[in-house]
Amino acid sequence: MNIHYPGGPAVTPVKQITIVIDGEEVSVPEGSTILTACNAAGKDIPTLCYGDTLTPKNACRVCMVELKGSRVLVPSCSRKVQPDMVVMTDTDRVRHSRRLVLELLDSSVDLSTTPRIPEWKERYNVDSDRYGKRASESLTRDVHDPGEHHAGNGDVAATMCQPIKIDNDLYVRDYSKCILCYKCVDACGTQWQNSFAIQIAGRGFDSQISTEFAAELPESACVFCGNCVEVCPTGALSFKSEHDMRVAGTWDESQQTETTTVCTYCGVGCNLNLHVQDNQIVKVTSPHDHSVGHGNLCIKGRFGFQHVQNRKEDGGS
């Protein structure tokens, strides 16, 4: 709203809250999370389901820290600071929990395109092979029978492994890589796009991000804004262009440049980050800290770049 109230509420200074993290005092504005305080204190807390543009879902539990007086560990991404909290970020309990969360994920999900996983696996001594051979591809993950499962004999470790979903030209869904962090659901729902094309279907380990009755995206409410791709932390959702290049073995981030520009389709003024490899735009992201779009784009800004690089030798004019 563009209403200005002359003499409206004055800006009151935000109270600073001081807490102790690993023995050192840290002050952050009231309403901050423990994660914010940890970052301010220079701690490197791993996160997966945390998104800087989304309400914390605290589903992945990799950012857990020990809070004095709490029976269980607490998720630093969502727990707000309170005066005199005493937080420990690297105790045996914390390390055990992070190690196990990473092991459980790594043994059930393909984390090969998730940033920083190798580093964290080393830091927390992750041994995800101890759960046994990973189960092969399942063709029935989109059929839901909540409360039931086929228990084998424990010889293979259950996984998310399933066929990749390619049902449109813009982005692909490789749910073998999905950690069920809910970020795409939140981006598609009330937090950003309000399209409500996808939700979690099924229950427990058999849960799956899905449209109604697993309908293909073009049949669903999807508007192809790609804001789910923007927030996906594991590469389960990716540009079709990126996917094709990965399959062809030509995807090479070290050869890519990023150029920020303003989208030319309308007057809103969303910023685009053009990822360019070999003089071709290979994907488009958007800066999360930009005041207009907060990382969100529409189908045109996100995917409508092909005309920029149609060249004469390709038959264009």
Binding site: R61, S107, G154, L180
Partner: peptide
């Protein structure tokens, strides 16, 4: 089996942990 079936699936420790718990017990049984 009960906990694996009844886990809502929201958080990783329970969603995957209940699966690994059942698998380990199955291996011990076999």
């Amino acid at each position: 089996r009960f906990f694996r079936d009844e886990s809502c699936g929201q958080c990783v420790p329970c969603r995957v942990g209940t699966v690994r718990q059942e698998e380990a017990l199955l291996r011990i049984a076999h």
